[in-house]
Amino acid sequence: MDIAVLGIPMDLGAGRRGVDMGPSALRNARLSRALRNLGHVVRDLGDVPVPVAETVDKHEETGLIFLETILGACASAAERLRDLPAGTFPISLGGDHSVSVGTVVGASRGERTGLIWVDAHTDFNTPASSPSGNIHGMPVAHLVGLGEERLAHLGGDWNVRPEDIVMIGIRSVDRRERDLVREHGITVYTMKEVDQLGMSRIAEETLERLGGLPRLHVSFDADALDPSIAPGVGTPVPGGLTYREAHLLMELLSESGRVTSMDIVEVNPALDTQNQTAHVMVGMAESLLGKRIM
């Protein structure tokens, strides 16, 4: 497989600094080498330029912190991914989860796309519902066309359909956000469902629900994992996916042969121990891209 790696070193959508170093941490964890060892051809496209927070206006008068800069970075990421040769598998490295507004738009190439959102949070706030104004809590809402007009229509008239979204690992949702998720009929597997159903059944149901779609995009937030496994995240929530649950999900999605793109986001080396979280997330990418024991 031809794989293109693109970094979006941005922490402007988050409430804590540090995830702008995520792409470097993942590269230092030998992401490209690990994928080449699986037989893939890997090109590293470098990073989308993102100004550091201290050099730009926070734009607080809009109610959305760093809106203009985030919008510009997401638009640049979407353009870079959209211009890749057909058949390329893009892996986008965040940065905070607001980058997915651009990466999902770009990786979709205007085609109907299933979105598998592996995260502790639904990220379905809008500017009206968000208690913080941090855009990393809003990307899915914007991808379906809600919220700030320019972010919601970054793909022109293209949006993800709510029925084409499956969220896995959820365990922290704001009250008004929960109402929006239910109103739009998003499929959500909380950690309660993970415990009750098991990951094998959840993966099976996810692939069945998204059956027939030409593209599947996996957006993997490191805080979906339990903090004991992935301590280097800005918004840790206890009780997350275990190491084996997450790998099993990636392995089963890989076996389907239907995933066409991936995000790895919210790795914060400033809060990590010996780059542990980045190494774990590289392992997740390996499982999604075909690593097998036998």
Rank of each mutant, 00 (worst) to 15 (best):
I116S: 12
W117I: 03
V118G: 09
A120H: 07
N125K: 00
T126N: 00
P127R: 06
S129H: 01
S130N: 00
G133L: 02
G133W: 04
N134V: 05
H136N: 15
G137P: 07
H142F: 03
E149M: 12
R150W: 01
H153F: 04
L154Y: 03
L154Q: 08
G155R: 14
G156A: 14
D157R: 14
W158C: 11
R161W: 07
E163Q: 15
V166H: 11
I168N: 10
I170M: 12
R171E: 13
D174N: 06
R175C: 08
E177G: 02
R178A: 15
R178N: 14
D179I: 15
L180D: 01
V181C: 02
R182F: 08
R182T: 12
I186K: 05
T187D: 10
T190I: 07
M191F: 03
E193L: 02
V194E: 11
V194P: 12
L197R: 04
G198C: 06
S200C: 04
E205A: 07
T206D: 11
G211W: 14
G211H: 13
G212M: 04
G212L: 04
L216E: 05
S219F: 08
A222V: 13
A224E: 10
A224R: 08
L225Y: 14
D226S: 05
D226M: 11
P227K: 10
S228A: 15
T235S: 15
P238Q: 10
Y243Q: 04
E245A: 05
